[in-house]
Structure formats: C-alpha cells, structure tokens
Nucleic acid binder design. Structure first.
Length: 426
RNA sequence: GUGGCUGUAGCUCAGUUGGCAGAGCACCUGUCUGUGGAUCAGGACGUCGCGGGUUCGAGCCCCGUCAGCCACCCCA
C-alpha cells in the first residue's frame, strides 16, 4: 500500500491526533503547575545564531550536537538546542525594564543532532521554568515545589518519581576536605555521574585508574553515601525547611550523587528520576546558575530553574498507566444526514446546536445510516441525531444516546437541553 | 561519533537445510432502501525496508545503504 512515501527527517516526530492529545495533556499540566506559582509564559526564537551558543566557552558539545545550517544569505543559523542562552539574551536586553523577582516559563520545540533511540529524538518539546533575581534557598525550594506539583498533577506518586537534591558548593567544600584539587573536579564529577551505571568494584577500579588515590577514593565514597551531609550546609537546611513548609518534602531527597554538568550550576542542583521501573530515568533537572547574565554581557543576576523534556515523561506516564483515555472527536454529537433531501435540514440543526454552545459534527454527505453510526462509534461520539421524514414532519429530532443505546424523539427546540442532560449524566 | 540487534499485509508477528507468501487483530461486504458496538458468513490485502551480488532458484546466504531499537558517548 504505502509505496514511495517520502520519509520524514530522521529523529523528527509526527503527532497523530492521539499523540497530539498526549502532548497537549503534558502542556496543560505544565501550564497549570507554572501558573499556580505565578510564572509568566514566554517564548524565544526557534532559530538562533550559532554564536549564541558558542559564546558559552567550553561547550563544544553544542557545536557538535546542534542542528546548524547556512541560510540563503550565508549566515550560520542553528535550531535552538536549549533555551537558557536565549533567556539570558532577552533578559539582558531589557534588564532594567523587567520586574523582579522575574518568573518565566516556556514549553516549546528544541532540536539536537543526536543518535535517536527510545526516549531521545532529534526533535523534542521542553518545559523551561526559571526565577531570576533572588539568590536564596527559598527560591530554589520554590522551583523544586513547582516540579513536585507537576509530578503530582500527572499522577506520579513520590514512590514513582523522586527529586534528588544536592549543592555544588557543599560538594566543593567536601572535595577540598578530602584533598581533591580544583583541577580534578571535572574528572570526579564524571566519576560520580557514572557510579550508578557501573558495578561498585568496577567503578572503584575505574576511579583509581582515572587518577584518584586510595585515600581520595575512600573519602569520596564516604561522602557520596552520607545521607545526612545536607545537615552540614546552611543553604540545604534552609532549603529542606522551605520544602517542608511548601508541602512537597515527600517528593524530595538529598543525594550527593547528583552533580549535573559542572560548568553550569553554582549552588543547588536537582534532578527528578522515574523510580517506578527497573531503569532510573531522568525526568527533569535544574539548579541555580548565578553567572549566566554576566557571561553574556549583562549585569550579574541570580537565577534558578529547570528543564523537562516531553519524551521521557510520555514514556513514564504510559508505563504507569497515567495517560488519559483518548477521545478521538472533540465533538460529542453527530448529526446524521438521512438523505440528499434532508441534508440542508441537518446542516441547519448542527448550526443551531453550535449556537447553543455545543461541539457538533455534521456527517458530510448522505450515506447509509448504519455507516454514519459506525463513524460516530469509532470517533467516540456520545450522541447521534437523526433527522428524517418522520422527524421533520413532526418537528422533532431523534436523539440517540450512543452509550446507553436509548433513543427518544424530542421537539426540535428542546434538543440542546436534552443533549446537555445526556452529556452531564455521563 | 563507536559497537550490536532488528526490518515480511494497516498493526503485532510466524515463515523449516535456499524450493508456490502465512496467522491473529484491524479493514471491506453481507437476505434492495431508518440505527453503531457483540457473534456468524464471505472478501480484499504484499516492491518480504531499499540497492547490488551468489544460485537453476533468495523472505532466508554475502556486500552496501536507509530506518528503528539496545549499549557506549552525551545530557545544555
């Protein structure tokens, strides 16, 4: 059948109505969580210059994994791989005109030129949410609370999704204490990232080969396994106090293993994982980054935020049976077309019902009534209306409840009310 | 970017040592003219991902390529 169809671009996503419904479901939950805390929706260009990302020194990965091409004018442009540089620019351009604390959120498409596999495509949607201005643990706690609110709103319990929290400055002080010099931090950071993926003894061997001595390794292990380490750090104590007050502490745990890309974050870091399955999957991640505005030439400005991709969230929701049932038709009512003769009558009835505030689909042509009912059934519609010779003569409409199977004849003027009754009872 | 697995009907898949292309589900039609879902009866459905090679003969073997998946890598 499907011959010679030009394939879609590798790694892109096609949203058939059912997938689009899931995307919109996620979007609605994201929007609600964001707005509950007073965040404003905003958006940035999808196309940016490569320089915007190259400006962040040390991020060659951006150059390797960004979707870049030369436009007709010879400029190098990039499909945005992340939002934060655009945020930094837009803030910097109006830094003195904006109102702080500034709370912004966004949900839009991003592109990364990666090797596609499950949970990772070249085109994805991402929720970004940030607070700029305050530099307090309580601000950090608010972002974590927003994340927890989202997880809760889609039906993920603390047992299914957990947010792990750490602090980069705490880790720096601890690394100092066990004699890991500043220039080894990147190495150690990678080591920590890797620890969950390797067997413990293999990981230790790897760590020693990578250049740690036994005393450093021992210190590192003790550090990573210390669940009470947060108590030694004022900011984390305040953070957990605030989380408790915000009512989300059941979703949050301290974990020294969370480090997240060393060069970016300056304080609190956090990452939510799906812990319902056999594999721990990252749902969202973020933290405090206080240097960003200064890096792009703005005045120093503190910031905290996180990002969440739609792909993994969709998979996790599906695996936990949390995706709402798909309703194919946004219109619960079908007006059938009895014959050519009554086509105009059906169209007029549909228009009346729409005027009464109902979503109504009119069958587009005369066809066997059985086929029109089949259509209504497949589209998940709740009510079918029949307008044939008998009904028109008596000024009535046959209203059939497709869920219960009951059918009654109703005076035409009473049809909207009758439909609303049926819909309300289901 | 590296390594591996997979690709057969709309979907999920079977297909023996190389010998006529299969199943289930979905789909279409059912006693001539006003009613969907369930059952029954009948029917249609293939570039075996694509290109090349070996062979009397390839879905099956070999090479290449594309796509999906898995592990690395990375996760802004």
């Amino acid at each position: 059948m499907a011959k010679n169809i030009i394939p879609s671009v590798k790694g892109t996503r096609e949203f058939y109505p059912e997938e689009m419904a899931l995307r919109n479901f996620i979007y609605e939950k994201v929007r609600r969580a964001s707005q509950q805390f007073g965040y404003q929706e905003w958006e940035a260009p999808y196309l940016e210059t490569l320089e915007l990302y190259a400006a962040k020194s040390g991020e060659e990965l951006v150059k390797e994994q960004a979707f870049t091409f030369v436009d007709r004018g010879g400029s190098r442009v990039t499909l945005r791989p992340e939002l934060t540089p655009s945020l930094a620019r837009m803030i910097a351009k109006k830094q003195r005109q904006l109102t702080y604390p500034l709370r912004w959120w966004s949900f839009g498409p991003f592109w990364r030129y990666e090797r596609p596999q499950k949970g990772r495509s070249r085109e994805f949607f991402q929720w970004n949410i940030d607070m700029l201005g305050p530099d307090t643990p309580e601000a950090d706690a608010e972002l974590i609370a927003v994340a927890a609110s989202f997880l809760k709103s889609v039906g993920l319990s603390p047992g299914q999704a957990t947010i792990y929290v750490n602090n980069r400055r705490l880790m720096d002080s601890q690394f100092d204490a066990i004699g890991i010099p500043a220039e080894s931090r990147l190495l150690v950071s990678n080591l920590v990232d890797r620890r969950n993926k390797m067997k413990e003894d293999a990981w230790q061997t790897y760590a020693l080969e990578a250049g740690l001595n036994r005393s450093q390794l021992g210190g590192l292990i003790a550090l990573l396994e210390n669940k009470d380490l947060w108590k030694e750090w004022e900011d984390l104590r305040r953070l957990f106090t605030a989380l408790d007050a915000l009512g989300v502490s059941e979703y949050v745990e301290f974990d020294a293993n969370v480090v997240r890309g060393l060069l970016y974050y300056t304080g609190t870091v956090f990452e939510a994982f799906d812990v319902s399955g056999s594999v721990r999957r990252s749902l969202l991640g973020g933290g405090r980054y206080n240097n960003l505005l200064a890096d792009v030439g703005g005045d120093p400005l503190s910031a905290v935020g996180f990002a969440m991709g739609d792909v993994v969230v969709g998979i996790v929701l599906a695996e936990n049976g949390l995706i709402p049932e798909f309703e194919p038709s946004p219109a619960p009512v079908l007006v059938t077309v009895f014959s050519e003769e009554f086509l105009a009558e059906s169209l007029a009835l549909s228009a009346e019902l729409r005027k009464a505030g109902l979503n109504v689909t009119n069958y587009p042509e005369p066809a066997k009534i059985a086929n029109q009912f089949k259509f209504a059934n497949k589209m998940g519609m709740k009510i079918a209306l029949i307008l044939g010779a008998i009904e028109v003569e008596s000024g009535q409409v046959a209203v059939k409840d497709l869920v219960s199977g009951e059918q009654v004849n109703v005076a035409r003027a009473d049809v909207p009310e009758r439909i609303k009754q049926i819909l309300a009872s289901e």
